[in-house]
């Protein structure tokens, strides 16, 4: 997190319009310090970094309900999920958010993957069907539609095929090449920062530089991932946060 914060600062110093997004399974953890804080250390670090939005992954739904509620209320950024409902049918989190950047309205829709095995306490709707429903409605409200999906690669790619979608940022297990996928037919880009494997967590940050025309269509893109090697300095604000929670 401390190296990630340095990298984010570096990018913000270089570029004017930067969105920082998280595609899920970020709060669930088997790290003792994170568990001890109810994952608040993670959400507070994301607040320091100035995240624009995050989506809940299915592992995040296995956190105790009160802990998840506290995470959502502590975040200074929207934590999204359009397809996770409480048992009474109320949405657990905001389905989407709309940001404005230089006159462009950017909708960010959150979709959570189906938990396997199914979990109790929530109703998780089909992410593809729910996604299609929201995308149809968001097309009229925004000129750029980003889907933030912790759904795995196959569903992410199908979401990228939808008319009106410009960018899919996804997380989860991939059954296919995790590199960027450019869909020529609707000019949409589908990207993932890193594929989860044992020992991978927090290692990579994805970087997409997009040129959009006045109607919000991607005309050019560059994409890469950066490994957070020790060459990135630790950000003092994150180190301070870690120490406040009793970390090294």
């Amino acid at each position: 997190m401390a190296r990630r914060a340095s990298f984010v600062k570096e990018i913000r110093n270089k570029y004017e319009n930067v969105l920082l997004l998280d595609a899920g399974n970020t709060f669930w953890s088997d790290v003792p310090l994170t568990r001890k804080t109810g994952s608040l250390i993670i959400v507070e670090a994301m607040n320091i970094m100035g995240y624009s939005a995050a989506v809940l992954g299915e592992k995040d739904l296995t956190l105790p309900k009160d802990a998840l509620g506290k995470i959502i209320s502590t975040a200074n950024f929207p934590i999204l999920s359009a397809n996770v409902l409480e048992e009474d049918g109320k949405p657990l989190a905001s389905p989407y958010t709309i940001l404005e950047v230089k006159g462009h309205r950017i909708a960010i829709l959150g979709l959570t993957g189906l938990p396997i095995p199914p979990i109790t306490g929530y109703r998780v709707l089909d992410p593809l069907e729910t996604g299609r429903h929201y995308i149809r409605n968001l097309k009229g409200q925004a000129d750029i539609v980003i889907v933030l999906a912790h759904t795995g690669g196959e569903i992410a790619k199908e979401l990228g095929d939808e008319d009106g979608v410009d960018l899919v940022v996804w997380g989860g297990v991939s059954g296919q090449n995790p590199g960027p996928f450019w869909n020529e037919s609707n000019a949409s880009l589908t990207i993932i920062a890193e594929v989860p494997t044992p020992g991978h967590a927090g290692r990579e940050v994805g970087f997409a530089r997009l040129n959009l025309d006045s109607k919000g269509r991607i005309t050019h893109y560059e994409w890469s991932t950066t490994s957070l090697t020790p060459s990135f300095p630790d950000d003092p604000a994150i180190i301070g946060l870690i120490q406040r929670y009793g970390g090294p």
């Binding site: 997190m1 990630r4 984010v8 990018i11 570029y15 004017e16 319009n17 930067v18 969105l19 920082l20 997004l21 998280d22 595609a23 899920g24 399974n25 970020t26 709060f27 669930w28 953890s29 088997d30 790290v31 310090l33 994170t34 568990r35 994952s39 250390i41 993670i42 670090a45 992954g57 592992k59 950047v101 230089k102 462009h104 950017i106 750029i144 980003i146 912790h150 940022v169 996804w170 997380g171 989860g172 990207i191 993932i192 920062a193 890193e194 989860p196 991978h200 967590a201 927090g202 990579e204 940050v205 994805g206 970087f207 997409a208 530089r209 997009l210 040129n211 959009l212 919000g216 870690i242």
Partner: peptide, 15 residues
């Protein structure tokens, strides 16, 4: 517009 999107996923609470 030139828009940069930084993105992370599956952090699993790793500090």
């Amino acid at each position: 517009l030139e828009l940069v999107v930084l993105h992370t996923n599956d952090t699993w609470g790793y500090i």
